Computed example of a mutant assay.
Amino acid sequence: MTVKTMLCAGIAALTFGTATLAQDTSYTVALDGTFAPHAMPSLSGGVEGFNVDLANIIGERLGAEMDIVATQFSGILPGLAAGTYDFVVAPTTITEERAASLLFSEGYLNTDFQFVVAADAEEVAELEGFAGKIIAVNKGSVYDSWAQGLASEIGWTVESYGTNTDAVQAVVSGRAFANVAGNTVSAWAVKQSPAIKLSYLHSTGLYWGMPFRKGDEELRAKVESVIECMKTDGTMAELSVKWFGVEPADGSAAITPVAGFGQPGFEGYVEDDHALGCD
């Protein structure tokens, strides 16, 4: 048995085998409290959303108090580096640049581009199917620059709006054929309105992971072991249905644990033979 396997076995026993574990550990974690449906103001006070639930479940399974700080995303990663936060629970895309200075968990959600169209609109099976159509986007977003960059190739017209909510409303009112945004944000919009439906999904091959400071491999292993368990025991799928209104697709990051610790192909990934699940 390798040292890391022994570590993981110990983590699993701590996490899943002791229901009466005292909460004598606490973690301060951060997220963007305005990024619905991942985190957003709750009518009862505080914040709610997919990543809020995810953070709380991680805390429960580790027997730890979770101090969830809602703040602007621009200050979250610098705050992690400064030691203000123990780790980050805001959706954070795993990139080579970020992995050079941060330690990432394995991906827990795919971060793709999703189109939204009117509920009675024709089905679109490929990007070329939007040729000649008006595509509404949130001005200044990555979706705006992506769509503008493909305008001449696809043959669509891009109209930019101040918020993604306004861009979605352009679809509802018929001023645009489709809106493109992040897959979870689009799913949330459809969940809120019967006037629209999900359309073509453009895969980016990217994932959201949880960032830790370099050197915090032990904490990453604890948290990632919980994430892997949530993938295999159905908890992550339940959260997807609750907040996005969709079941995770076969092979998607939400239900597919990854061998080792971290995301393969990125700096900080550690090969390991620990059990992928709740054992």
Rank of each mutant, 00 (worst) to 15 (best):
G75M: 03
G174T: 00
T232Y: 00
A237V: 14
T2F: 04
A121G: 03
K191A: 11
G245A: 12
D24I: 07
A136C: 12
A99Y: 13
Q169R: 04
A64K: 05
G75I: 06
A189Q: 06
F50W: 02
A81R: 15
W156S: 15
V117K: 13
A30M: 13
D273I: 01
G33V: 10
S141F: 05
F244V: 01
K139N: 12
I227K: 05
W208C: 04
A119K: 11
D233V: 09
Q263V: 08
L206V: 06
C278D: 01
L239I: 09
A121E: 09
S252F: 13
F104W: 02
W188P: 03
F113D: 10
T20Q: 07
A125G: 10
V29E: 14
D279A: 02
T20D: 09
I57S: 03
F130A: 14
F50S: 07
F130V: 15
V185I: 12
L7V: 12
D112T: 09
R175T: 04
M210E: 03
G83M: 11
N164L: 12
G174D: 07
G45R: 09
Q148N: 09
Y161W: 08
D24H: 10
M40N: 06
E60M: 00
V69C: 13
A100V: 02
S141D: 06
G215P: 01
G245T: 14
E247H: 06
E106W: 01
R175S: 10
I154M: 11
V124R: 07
G162M: 07
V270C: 00
M230E: 05
A22S: 02
W208K: 03
I94Q: 05
E267C: 07
Y207H: 15
G265W: 12
D112F: 13
G17E: 04
E271A: 09
K191H: 06
V117C: 13
A30E: 15
Q23G: 00
S186R: 08
L80P: 07
G59Y: 02
V137M: 06
L54Q: 09
S74D: 07
I94L: 14
F113Y: 14
A64I: 05
S44P: 02
G251A: 10
P91V: 12
F244A: 04
S152G: 05
G215T: 02
S44L: 06
Y27E: 09
D67Q: 15
L62D: 06
G260S: 05
T71R: 15
T5I: 03
P211Y: 01
T157Y: 06
R220V: 02
P248G: 11
F266H: 11
A125S: 15
F212Q: 13
T15W: 03
F212N: 07
R213Y: 08
V190Q: 04
T232G: 00
Q192H: 05
L206T: 14
K191I: 03
H274W: 01
I255P: 10
G59C: 07
Q148V: 08
Y85A: 09
G277E: 00
E267W: 03
F244R: 03
N183V: 07
T165G: 15
I196P: 07
I94N: 08
F115M: 15
A82K: 08
D272P: 02
A189N: 04
A70L: 13
A254K: 06
P264C: 09
